Computed example of a mutant assay.
Amino acid sequence: MSNKETTSRTLMVALAVSLVSSIFVAGAAVSLKPIQVENRQLDKQRSILAIAGLGEAKLSGAEVKKLFGERIAAKVVDLSSGEYVDQFDPTTFDPLKAARDPKLSAELAGNEDIALIKRRERYTTVYTVEQDGKLESLILPIRGYGLWSTLHGFIAVKADLNTVVGLGFYQHAETPGLGGEVDNPKWKGLWPGKQLFDDAGKPVIRIVKGGVDPASASAVHQVDALAGATLTSNGVDRLLQFWLGEQGFGPYLAKLRAEGV
């Protein structure tokens, strides 16, 4: 057999192996996708429950589903009007996907985009905890750019729409030990009880470098910055100003206040 024939046969075998491997990998990816989607959903639900003070990270998938279904109601809101809408299924609507769709989102001008998200969806999903038909707490999705990544999370507030129940991020790529300290239970423990707004409804919660002075009248509106992670801390500060303001949930919260919710 000539060297040319040997080389051709080797290439054919390599091509066949590559083709079979590609088919196998593609098939595995397709078959595993529903499991991956379900796991991401469970992670998000687990995060919502924890931030709302209703569950712990160690809950099993079945326990998360049961508790979430019993205590949490998802609703889609029009961010511009603050009205609930019914043209989307709140259990499947994806605000992040909507933010990439020009028909369902709007580009943010430079001075508007303090959270550095580029586009803001027109509709998003909020979550309520209710007891006997009365609101106990409200969980709002938040996101914005830190140092290396977009931080995705939630903030939960009491029925007064001002007092923080909890804050946390379920997805980010900040530096472990620095910006990654947004996941530190000690830092997250600083948030409950903080007040987001002043008497006029203006967002005044701030991340403070150097530590909060507990004797200050502003202490109730302040949280310590992350040590050694100024840019991540600034990112959290900016994303809160954005989502609690007029470009974010401002109209929705104003509507709830007017209704006496």
Rank of each mutant, 00 (worst) to 15 (best):
L253I: 08
A62I: 09
K186Q: 15
K202A: 08
K186D: 15
F249D: 07
I205Y: 00
H172M: 00
P192I: 03
I142T: 01
I155W: 03
L42I: 15
K65Y: 01
D94E: 13
T150I: 06
K58I: 11
V64M: 01
A28P: 08
D94R: 09
F88Y: 13
T163K: 04
V223W: 04
Q241L: 14
G144A: 08
L54I: 02
H221Y: 02
T230N: 00
V223A: 10
T163E: 06
G53L: 07
A225S: 14
L116H: 12
Q131K: 15
V182G: 06
L79C: 04
S80I: 04
K103R: 11
T7M: 11
N111F: 10
P185W: 05
Q87K: 15
V129T: 02
K118Q: 08
S218K: 15
Q195V: 04
Y84W: 03
T124C: 13
K202M: 03
V204C: 02
A173L: 11
Q195L: 12
R100A: 14
N234T: 09
S233H: 08
D198V: 02
A99N: 06
S21M: 10
A173V: 13
F24C: 11
G153Y: 01
K158M: 07
N184L: 09
R100V: 09
V77Y: 03
A219T: 04
A50N: 14
T128I: 12
K66M: 05
G260K: 01
P34I: 06
S149D: 13
T124L: 13
V25P: 05
K118C: 04
P214C: 11
W148V: 10
E112R: 02
A74P: 10
Q41N: 15
R257K: 12
E136Q: 13
L135A: 02
K209C: 03
D183E: 14
S47R: 00
V261Q: 08
L11P: 07
L190Q: 11
L67N: 04
K33D: 14
A98F: 13
L54K: 03
Y84L: 14
E130Q: 09
D89G: 08
P192A: 04
K209E: 09
S80L: 06
E112Y: 02
E181M: 09
N184C: 09
L196N: 00
T150G: 03
Y84P: 09
A258P: 05
T124D: 11
Q45W: 04
V165E: 07
F24T: 14
K58P: 07
G53C: 11
A109S: 12
P192L: 03
R143N: 15
T92N: 03
E136Y: 05
T7V: 14
V208H: 00
L167C: 04
G179C: 13
P90C: 02
L67T: 09
F93G: 06
H221K: 02
Y170T: 09
G260F: 05
I207N: 05
D113H: 07
Y252P: 02
A98L: 12
T124S: 15
V129Q: 05
Q241K: 14
E56I: 00
V85Q: 00
N111K: 15
T163D: 06
K65S: 03
S218N: 14
M1P: 14
S47Q: 09
A62P: 01
E63P: 07
S233T: 07
V164K: 06
T230W: 07
P95R: 14
F169T: 10
Q36V: 10
W148F: 15
I207C: 04
N234A: 10
T150F: 03
I155S: 09
V126L: 12
I48Y: 02
Y170A: 08
D94S: 11
